[in-house]
Design a protein around this nucleic acid. Sequence first.
DNA 1: CCTAGCCTAATTTTT
DNA 2: TTAGGCTAGG
Length: 806
Amino acid sequence: MSDSSTPLIVPAGAGPRGPQAGAFDDLLEGLNPQQREAVEYRGPALLIVAGAGSGKTRVLTHRIASLLRTREAWPSQILAITFTNKAAGEMRERVEQLIGDSARGMWISTFHSACVRILRREADQFGFTKAFTIYDSGDSRALIKRLVKEHEADALGLTPASVQSKISKLKNELADADSYARDANMNDPVERMFTDLFRAYQRQLQKANAFDFDDLIAQTVYLFRAFPQVADVYRKRFRHILVDEYQDTNHAQYALIHELTRPVSSSTDVGGGMLALMDEAEGASLTVVGDSDQSIYAFRGADIRNITEFERDYPGAKVVLLEQNYRSTQNILTAANSVIRNNFDRKDKRLWSDQGDGEKVIGFTGYSQHDEAQFVADEIEQLRRQGVDYGQMAVFYRTNSQSRALEEIFIRAAVPYKIMGGTKFYERQEIKDALAYLVTVANPADEMALRRIINKPRRGIGDVSVETISSFAERNGITFRDALGHSAELGFGPKIQGAIAQLHNVLVEAQEILLPSNGEIPPPTSVAEGLQVLLNKTGYMDALRASRDPQDEARIENLDELVAVTREFARNNPDGTVLDFLTTVALVADSDDLDDASGSVSLMTLHTAKGLEFDTVFLTGVEEDLIPHRISANEPGGPQEERRLFYVGITRARKRLYMSLAMTRAQFGEVSAAMPSRFLQEIPADLIHWRQSPGDVNGRGGSQSRALNARRPGGSDRWGVKPLGPSSSLKPKSTAMDKFPGLVTNKVRDNGDLELAAGDRIRHDDFGEGRVDAVTGEGAKRIAHVRFDTAGPKKLLIKIAPIAKL
DNA sequence: CCTAGCCTAATTTTT
DNA sequence: TTAGGCTAGG
């Protein structure tokens, strides 16, 4: 009924047969034939296979615009799903640009926000309230940790991390504790324990009136399956469903889409006419866009088959292939193609560009990750001087920890940068604390949140007291939160009793501000106001100010920023409530706050980079064990997924692509030798111009690099080469990776303990015997300056050079 | 209940 | 290297 405003009758002038010719010529302008077809096609199911940079967002927005323009659909009948909020915002903006205000009323959002919206509306149907909160992975980890401890599950080898990831996987497969228990071997104590934990976890969530990330999707599917009438409301409403990045959907998301595109189950008329009923009998029309070569989320349940088997799932589906790339130069695309074609069982697809070859990929090998970072920084500065905007340059890496070295060097080199992701703002302790205060007020059932802040700042309420309160609540059949209101009956001394009463009062005061008991609708500024009351009157701020921990100063700043965020939120959402605020905050992704990155270089992981593009891209850490990551080696499909990740990285670049690596890499204090990634071998030699090849660095390359080595002036106390001025382009280029067979597939050599001193004689596999002149550097980065009897002077990295002491 | 100090474990990617 | 957990002492 809530949708009585949604017109169910198709507007006059349009029919199921499609738009009239000429109704949207301008929307087709500048599109290639395949893109046009993807915009114009009308039918129950359409799969757009969109290679990287092939203009899929353009196609998608123009398709939506055309549906609206021709009045085939009302805005409210359109549901478009994207992967990030940022992508959703962009899409909405672009559709509005095309057709103006009439775009209002569309649902363009992520899977998660769409589900939250549905769940909020329907929560009461199945044991939750509209005030439910959303647990991010940190929250659920904390809960699972507690449960693991309580159940003493660690004795069976179950760690919080393993339990969490297993539960997450199961939920993505739409399994619950019961269905798991049916299939599992219950004689195995570990399995039994896990089932218990899963059940307990789910019970706690329900009790806390909370959903975790995976629940948002899975529970929506359950809801639709358990209450077909509810599902019908949405089936009637959404007549056109479009899903972006379809290759990254997991089973639960697939099922959700499937439920939504089903024909309405009940025939009870809710006011629509005949025509509407006929339409609904067919189910909504579904458009999915994706590229199986860019599927990089299998680790969290994405099922590549959702896209590869689309035609089977939706018989009669139309498939459109977009292969022309409008983003990159041909050299970049050729590199990308030559890497990705090493994945078997993929449909061959070849991106092409008419933009010309462009520049070659530039390669660099540093002695250490700092050396590598210095190269990147130098190049960035050089490009900047040539007029390239910082905002048009990006540095990618496989793991977040790699950002550290880059940051250090960038700070020193005064390169403005912005890290996307990493330690996220909303995952900082103080921010989580502040949010937990808000949650405690907004959703009193959420015991987790209250437990988090009950002793922050220190109030003298430790574990023992918390348990006392908890059992009091249980005995009296009230919630933990309500127990705080009975401070006098808890049996504490005056100090603790006072502290509890104090906390209770502040929470009540904030509640009056955020959710007035007289039912009045609070002004949009109430979130900021309530937050400040909570932070100030609880003494949280004072405690930070009084602290002499230098980190706490930054924490205060962060909290100020959070208050600013709430103000901003109030401006953008005049009727936003605390719950809306908390929802938004819970669902923001790393890539979402990309806008203010202008004017600085963007640093991010390869995963975060998906969907973005930059003029200049630096792919760093192109090493074995990093990309492909060591852990992926044992996972089925792991190496292939890593290759796709690498492919995604390459295809982000418009004009210039750099690939760099280091010969040694420090991981928590220890330095170890690194090897060039196997993926480098997959790129044709003539596409890469090595400024400094792996061979140059360890003195074991082909003849060209020997010559190069011999010519290079030694004696610098920096390990890396000198900053690369224009003269460096005079260097002869080194050649392909296959000139360095020993560097790629062989086992890592480790001469870690080899002690060398000036005067020692050594033997090198390639250069023969020689005498050590000097040793510089420390630890794994020690470099021997050797004068070989026949090959002349060389610099060698002691740890990994193929040498032996005589 | 709190704090300091020692020990150890971990580092893949994230809506 | 560092964050978190654990212990002992206040």
